[in-house]
Simulated assay, not measured.
Amino acid sequence: MTRRQAITVLGASAMLVGLLSAAAFLGGFRLNLTPSEPLGLWRIEAPSRAIAVGNLVFVCPPVTPLFEEARRRSYLVRGLCPGGVAPLIKAIAALPGQNVEIDEDVRIDGRLLPSSRLRKIDGAGRPLKSFAGGIVPPGYLYLHSHFKSSYDSRYFGPIPETGLLGLARPVFTIDP
């Protein structure tokens, strides 16, 4: 193969990858590379009914100093949400009006939330501040992941449901 042919093949390959990536993005597909949920290809689907506790969702976090710090600490990866981060994939653990109690674990309306033990430090030994707890306000969602090192509402509290992109549906995933 000549140099010119190699450059042509590489250029065509790069263009094909770019076109496929754009089509996947526009089709609502997202790649999850975090251990919060199974690794792999997911699709964002519009909910056909009101969202409920237990729904797995994609949500863009708000642009706040707390999330900017989370980005600097590499809790969040780069992406296309406002603030330059990727959407979070989390389960809805509490809806507006529900009471969230924070101690060593999380309780929602008095019931223990499974896999909700709080950590005092992150993987790099830096201190983690937890959400103080309280009633989830109107227009907000309390999010959770069963993964013990997940950065979720245990630490950042409820977030605006205006960032909700849709339900998270696995297409091709692998449990880590």
Rank of each mutant, 00 (worst) to 15 (best):
D103Y: 00
G133H: 02
L128A: 05
K120E: 14
I121G: 03
I108T: 04
R107Q: 10
D109Y: 00
F131Y: 15
P82F: 05
G83F: 03
D109I: 00
P127W: 08
I89H: 13
F131W: 15
A93D: 00
P96R: 04
A132I: 12
Q98A: 07
V85M: 13
P96C: 09
K90G: 07
V106D: 13
P137I: 08
P96Y: 11
S130W: 13
G133V: 10
I92W: 00
V100K: 05
K120H: 10
A124P: 02
S115G: 02
P87G: 07
A93Y: 02
P87E: 07
E101F: 07
P137V: 06
D105W: 11
G83T: 04
E101M: 12
P82G: 06
I92V: 14
K129G: 11
I102Q: 04
C81A: 07
L80Q: 12
R119H: 13
I121T: 14
S115D: 15
F131Q: 09
V136D: 02
P127R: 03
L80H: 11
R117Y: 02
V100D: 01
K129F: 07
L112S: 01
A132T: 14
I108N: 05
P127E: 12
K120D: 14
L113S: 01
P82V: 05
V106A: 04
A91P: 04
I89S: 11
A132G: 15
G84N: 08
F131V: 08
E104T: 13
R117E: 03
L128S: 06
R107H: 07
D105R: 13
V136E: 05
K129M: 06
L88K: 04
G134C: 05
G83E: 10
L113Q: 02
P127T: 10
V136Q: 10
L113D: 00
L118R: 10
L112R: 14
R126K: 14
A93Q: 02
P127C: 06
K129H: 09
S115L: 02
P114W: 04
R107L: 12
K129R: 12
N99Q: 13
L113N: 03
G97W: 08
P137K: 08
K120L: 15
V85C: 04
D122A: 09
P96S: 09
L112G: 03
R126Y: 11
S116E: 09
P96V: 02
L112A: 03
I89G: 12
G133T: 10
G134W: 04
Q98S: 05
G133P: 13
L128F: 06
G123S: 15
F131H: 15
P87N: 01
G97Y: 09
G110K: 09
A124G: 04
S116F: 03
F131A: 10
Q98R: 01
L112E: 00
G123K: 07
L80P: 06
S115R: 01
K120W: 09
D103T: 12
V106F: 03
D103N: 08
D103I: 00
E104C: 13
G123E: 15
G83P: 12
G110V: 10
L113K: 07
I108G: 02
E101D: 06
A124E: 08
G83R: 00
P127K: 01
I102A: 08
I102M: 14
L118A: 06
V100W: 01
G110A: 11
A86Y: 08
F131I: 09
K90D: 03
E101H: 11
L95D: 13
D122K: 07
L88V: 07
L118S: 04
P96W: 10
A86H: 02
S115F: 11
V136A: 08
A94V: 00
S130M: 07
L118P: 12
